[in-house]
Amino acid sequence: MVQRPRVSHQKKIKHVKACKISVFPESPHDHSTTFQPSHQPTTNTLSILSRLTIMTETVIIPAVAMSSNTREKSRPLPAELLYIQYSHAHEKQYLPSIRALISKDLSEPYSIYVYRYFLYQWGDLCLMALSPNSSPVSPKLIGVVISKLEPHTSPSHSSPTTLRGYIAMLAVSSSYRNHGIATTLVRKAIDAMVERGADEVVLETEETNIPAMKLYERLGFLRSKKLHRYYLNGNSAYRLVLHLKNVGEMMEAKELQQGGGML
């Protein structure tokens, strides 16, 4: 029998282009009787996040306030959702559900390596939304955002090297959509990037994914270019960009760093 390669070895990245974003944000005029997840002020996020992390470790579960008659249409939210920064210790408990949630909408799944690539290196920029009322011991994962933050130099060197955040994946479980969970996740990820001195944040989103595009545009993202047939399904994408600093400030910071390096 002829031996054939079982697995493709040669990388062909252009094909498996970056990551699909799947997101369904809240509707702006949602005044339903269900509980809204608390929008934390952006300024003290880090402390909130660390508190939340401690909360899960010590398993302090907030009381569940939910009457049975609100269980009609979309699932009502628990009184308090937990937003938790990922850390390596979460791998065993949450990585399988993170993969399951994200790959649900993907024709071709990412290998576990892609997840670990992000989660292991930038766990603090990856956030999970957990529903504590599902199980007191292991709150259920209902949403996740996965990102990274790295220096970026444009191939043509036409613009300065920036510290660029990249939102790679975003997903919220379908029965929990339209409650602002995705927006909260993205905001927390951006807050964490700001905290680490990010200059800008970029991402790609499928042209047909209007809710995702609206979510990001409400946060100030602009479409910078359209990418023809970017995804495997033949759909095009938009690159969305958010500058967190003025170009002048980015340059100054760069010069300071370089100056420091010379001393």
């Binding site: 079982r6 697995v7 990245i13 282009k17 071709e108 799944p109 290998s111 390596y113 990274k148």
Partner: peptide
């Protein structure tokens, strides 16, 4: 880089392993 990592495949996953 991410570029390389996205090309990684998992053996024994029917969607990634062509010999499965």
């Amino acid at each position: 880089t991410l570029f390389e990592s996205v090309g990684a495949l998992e053996i024994m996953d029917p969607k990634m392993d062509s010999g499965y």
